[in-house]
Amino acid sequence: MKNSVLYIRTDANEVIATGHVMRCLTIAEEYRKKAGEVCFIVSDENSAKMIDRRRYNVIVTNTKWNSVDIESEYKLLKHKIRRSDWLLIDSYHIYSSYAARIKQLLNVVVFDDMFSEKKIADVIINYNVFYRRFDYLNRYKHEKCILLLGEKYVPLRKQFREIEPEINVRKYERPKILLMCGGADKPNLIYETLQYLKENKPELFLQVDWKIVVGSFYSNIDQLNLLIQGYLNIELLCNVENMAALMNKCDLCVTAASTVLYECCAMLLPTLFFVVSEDQKYDAEVFSKDNMLLYCGNYMDGKKEALKRMEVVLSKIVKNREQQYKMKQMMKKFVDAKGAERIVAALMGEKNE
């Protein structure tokens, strides 16, 4: 409904990284443009810093991010909201008991990435392709809620609509490879990948140009700087604002799974990926189908084996222009960048295409 306020309850820190806040910011931008005011609710100043830069109102509850006080947040909202307002919940540490209580005050929309518990909400979003593994229709057949399911609802940032990706494989002497692992890189994947290639495949390590992206919660910067010191083929980039533009300049990507895989598909960027957390486990079978993206293994279950597979796969794909082109063709049909528009349209009561 137009002129309703969208409140967003989420968090970011060195443990859970920045993914939840980033996708919420994408929806917030679209909502502010189309519908009205947006206000974030976060547990601490760690999260608030990211959001402040985008000029949104932020309420800091000064509580533990992984142990939300339902009654205090109920009282906080009770004196601010109207019945027509919305609360978007995006956290793996806020459960249905919270949503059920808050839903007494306003409309609730929830991200549901893993189908782990029945959600109490007016709108439920699972944009992951693997949502088809779960029986949403049966679980919610007696509930009055809107289900926004599938890749058409991936909330990619506006920048991914503004750049036309390159369908052809560029001719290069030195390929540009993007290397990243979310905003925090808790498993230290970036360092371990470079260290492994430096020791075990030095010719590959030296013959490509590395574009390394780290976020504001990356804690291994000193260790990484020591490793890459003196290498002119490595560029370290912090808090990249326009990821679409950077992806469009690169030839390959090595990354952890998550929403970034949809971004790589949108930019037609041939990608190798690892699974580094439980919520990414289904990404492997979906994105690696027909080798659309190249799966290197579950990093948490077998780091050594995953790094070895990455070395083998990267050594092959970096020279295989034909396979890169096939990957681009498959990615072209996979996702568009209109997910945030569709989500906001649903909140406004409009029909989606």
Rank of each mutant, 00 (worst) to 15 (best):
Y282P: 10
C264I: 03
Y282M: 15
L268Q: 02
Q280E: 03
D283E: 12
A266N: 03
T255C: 14
Y262I: 06
C296D: 00
K289Y: 15
Y295G: 02
C265A: 08
V254Q: 01
C265G: 08
S277L: 05
M292H: 06
K281E: 01
F287Y: 12
N291M: 10
D279Q: 13
V286E: 15
V275I: 15
M292T: 05
Y299R: 13
V260D: 03
A257N: 01
A256D: 01
G297F: 01
Y299F: 11
L269M: 03
K281F: 06
M267G: 00
A256Y: 00
K281Y: 12
V275K: 05
N291E: 12
K281G: 06
D290G: 13
D283I: 06
F273P: 08
D290W: 14
N291W: 07
L268V: 13
T259R: 09
D279T: 15
P270Y: 08
M267L: 06
Q280D: 10
F287M: 08
T259C: 01
L294I: 12
E263M: 02
E263R: 12
F274C: 08
S288I: 14
T259F: 07
M267Q: 09
A257G: 00
K289G: 13
E263W: 02
D290Q: 14
C264G: 08
L294F: 08
F287G: 12
E263H: 02
Q280H: 02
V286T: 15
M292P: 11
M267D: 02
K281H: 02
